[in-house]
């Protein structure tokens, strides 16, 4: 068995694959402030589900922000892990849009799964999950509800700024003007979709386009980005664990190369 751990800015994910590369178990825990603790928790959760110990793992690959702090055989970048994960789940994908807690990425891959090019958001948090988390706090509605409310919008507002700080005060002012919350939410999803579209346009879109990362679980956001890029995306069953899954597949590959 092989273990992949993805220590993201907001959640830590662990995936165990068997010798055929099929998912045996998976776990998602909040990252908190200590990646070492969160990675151990995620790993334990995934291991417990299949009643195994860390020693039973032939190879462990860690990725994500906290990868250096994780007890693993080797480390890899998220770009490599996401691409590998997507290639296995959606072999027809040539473009990947991954939106996580603190980063958004667009990746172009070849038909044999190699990374051809990639872009990531700049230092700013606009266009990432963090943006939506802050807005959900401001609106005092959980993220899951934002996703539902999005589809009730009749007239999404136009946000004048995707800057997280400016958008926050803009949201407050719109709410105080009596604009409907669903229109504000749809406006926020459109703003973040616009930002990601602009970034990804630098490397271009080739079909199929796969959406991954925790934010892709938000149906409202997926809807906004789908409309923006005018292409139907392909979504894996569980977009949030694709990176950890890719890390586990990489562990399998590395172990086969150098057992």
């Amino acid at each position: 068995m092989y273990l992949g751990i993805d220590t993201g800015a907001s959640a830590t994910k662990a995936v165990i694959v068997d010798r055929r590369g099929e998912i045996a178990s998976q776990a998602i825990v909040p990252s908190g402030v200590n990646f070492k603790v969160s990675s151990e928790m995620a790993a334990k959760k995934a291991l417990d589900a299949v009643r195994l110990d860390l020693e039973d793992m032939l190879y462990v690959v860690s990725t994500g922000y906290g990868k250096a702090l994780v007890n693993s055989t080797s480390k890899s970048s998220e770009i490599a892990c996401i691409s590998r994960g997507v290639y296995r789940l959606i072999p027809s994908a040539r473009t990947i849009i991954d939106v996580g807690g603190q980063d958004s990425k667009a990746i172009r891959i070849s038909k044999d799964g190699k990374v051809l090019n990639f872009v990531m958001n700049d230092k700013c948090a606009a266009g990432t999950g963090r943006f939506l988390e802050i807005m959900s706090n401001t609106l005092q509605r959980p993220i899951e509800e934002l996703s539902m409310l999005h589809f009730k919008a009749k007239k999404p507002v136009k946000m004048s700024s995707t800057c997280t700080v400016f958008a926050e005060s803009e949201v407050v002012s719109q709410m105080s003007q009596g604009i409907k919350i669903e229109d504000v939410i749809a406006g926020l999803h459109e703003a973040i979709a616009e930002r990601i579209y602009t970034m990804a346009s630098r490397i271009g879109f080739e079909q199929d386009v796969a959406f991954t990362g925790g934010v892709s679980k938000n149906k409202g956001f997926v809807d906004a980005l789908r409309k923006k890029i005018c292409l139907s995306p392909v979504l894996p069953e569980e977009p949030q664990i694709v990176c950890a899954f890719g890390a586990a597949l990489l562990a399998m590959k590395k172990h086969k190369e150098k057992p």
Partner: peptide
């Protein structure tokens, strides 16, 4: 993180 990905 980006450098890692680029070098890979």
């Amino acid at each position: 993180g980006r450098i890692d990905a680029f070098m890979e």
